[in-house]
């Protein structure tokens, strides 16, 4: 019975996601444009492409997963939909799966674009992008789930995410070391996602630190979604 409802929720959320084409401008067209502008620079190593992948993952998590749930909750429809479908967790899970598919599709299209117009992307990089992006999307959702504790409205969320995007993207070009790097990884989702992508070329110390952060965010997100309020009366 529940599986039937989960499947219906997944299909409707996937349909909604593909009908809202405008947000692909932020999540896919902007990085494509950025990589085109930067193509004259040194673009030989994989680490360059990871910067764009991190941007795609984080903006998709913000514009897709977080904004969807905040909008549903604020409109009051999350409460109605929860009782229609029987579970609020099914709605969250369906939303997460839809965003995973969208991230995969965006990363794939981005890699194709880079291959055809910028530089050759190896098949190994395609596979790494596919495998790593699923895990990193889940971890980014876990990290940003803290937003649900704040019970903020959509307007405030838009301002907040705009600020985070601007600061986060600017800081992606900075490569601090030591304490500053750790601090940036904890607070910037872009840096966190980028850090996870570059794990194979990182020090063991930094990899352990990322594993610790990931575990912490996962625990926090479980607690957040367990207590997740479906009510519309927010601050």
């Amino acid at each position: 019975m529940e599986l039937r409802n989960d499947w219906a929720l997944f299909k409707i959320q996937l349909t909604i996601a593909f009908k809202e084409r405008f947000y692909f401008v932020y999540t896919l067209i902007v990085p494509m444009f950025m990589v085109f502008l930067n193509k004259t620079l040194n673009f030989q190593d994989n680490e360059s492409i990871y910067v764009y992948w991190s941007y795609i993952v984080v903006t998709t998590v913000f514009n897709g997963f977080l904004l969807n749930l905040i909008r549903l909750r604020e409109s009051g429809f999350l409460k109605t939909l929860t009782y229609l479908s029987g579970s609020r967790h099914s709605i969250v899970l369906a939303n997460l799966l839809v965003q995973l598919i969208i991230v995969q599709l965006e990363i794939f299209l981005f890699n194709l674009y880079v291959t055809f117009f910028i530089t050759h992307v190896s098949s190994l990089t395609f596979v790494y992008g596919f495998l790593a992006s699923s895990l990193i999307t889940v971890l980014c959702i876990a990290m940003t789930s803290i937003f649900f504790v704040l019970k903020i409205r959509r307007v405030v969320f838009n301002y907040l995410s705009g600020g985070i995007f601007t600061v986060g993207v600017l800081l992606l070009g900075v490569h601090p070391q030591g304490f500053n790097k750790a601090l940036l990884t904890i607070f910037s989702p872009f840096q966190f996602a980028y850090g996870l992508y570059v794990i194979p070329c990182s020090t063991i110390k930094y990899a352990v630190f990322l594993a610790f952060c990931s575990l912490l965010y996962l625990i926090i997100s479980v607690l957040v979604f367990k207590k997740f309020s479906i009510g519309e009366k927010l601050r």
Binding site: S75, G76, E232
Partner: peptide
Amino acid sequence: YLAQQNDFYVN
């Protein structure tokens, strides 16, 4: 359960 305030911003 039909909530009091209700809208569905979907295309």
